[in-house]
Design a protein around this nucleic acid. Sequence first.
DNA 1: TATTGTTATACTCTATAACTATA
DNA 2: TATAGTTATAGAGTATAACAATA
Lengths: 163, 163
Amino acid sequence: MPAPRRKAETTDTATADDRQPVSLGLLDNLLGYRLRRAQLSVFQDFLIVMKDFDLRPAQFSVLAIIAANPGLKQSRVSEALGINRANFVALLDELEQRKLARRAPAPGDRRSNALFLTPKGEGFLKDAYRHLVVQHEKRVETVLGSADKQQLLGLLEKLTALA
Amino acid sequence: MPAPRRKAETTDTATADDRQPVSLGLLDNLLGYRLRRAQLSVFQDFLIVMKDFDLRPAQFSVLAIIAANPGLKQSRVSEALGINRANFVALLDELEQRKLARRAPAPGDRRSNALFLTPKGEGFLKDAYRHLVVQHEKRVETVLGSADKQQLLGLLEKLTALA
DNA sequence: TATTGTTATACTCTATAACTATA
DNA sequence: TATAGTTATAGAGTATAACAATA
């Protein structure tokens, strides 16, 4: 006669469920996984902080590159950000419709557009950046510590050279 | 009479184009931007290295979590990975069709699925991980140095707690 | 009433091919 | 021939709402 089972849901195979903490297993020391999770957390915080400005990370990056390199050709802006030129068109269209950036004829090459911020775009970017530093980067540094942030930036730069 | 211009494409406004290096401007010390670029580089390398296994990062992560927590409920696996449960269904469907993972009835709750790897899935994951460590993580450590990698993992973990 | 798995749907992001106008 | 901007399109990834079965 078999031994009585106390509950119908108990089994003879060990299963890890209910309220045990979930183990990361092989993911634990996989850099790509940790990097992805950290990036999602930071982007999520960015989105919340920039909600009033209605600005996504990619849009911010375009404005920042144009501001730092006024007159740069459209193809070079998209290339610098790693955005393929076909996808860059709609992104720039929106910034232009919002009167934050503008396409101008590129001197010496009638195929190209030279990109500039509008005066409104300059003010907008300045305000957004100030807000970002105060709300977002400050929170990042609270979690990390300021020295750690600088070191992290250095490590990430090395990694980006990988591909 | 106006002074002669040497070339039609020269202008009187200073524009940053042609072969000057592109400045990152405000992006230079924005952690989110650097994090995103680094993550894309690492994922791109992952994809190349895992091409023969036809395995994307998300698929690898699911197999790894199931392997480390056999019998875990479907909802807890997706939750642990930050994948919303609706989107997790197709992801798991594909792993099940490839006979790498399987849904089993969860003891004690007929709404839930308990997830397991198949024997084939166990071998597949082991092979994939070995390949990944040899090809991918090794390259990462070449770029970073082994001590830096451990430190980076620690910093990223802190950041993930942000959101 | 709440939860689990599921479907349907929509929106963003990304990648490729092809067109046009210029070079 | 090659390049810059553009359009069209298709594939991932992600988010929400709603339903059936079960708790």
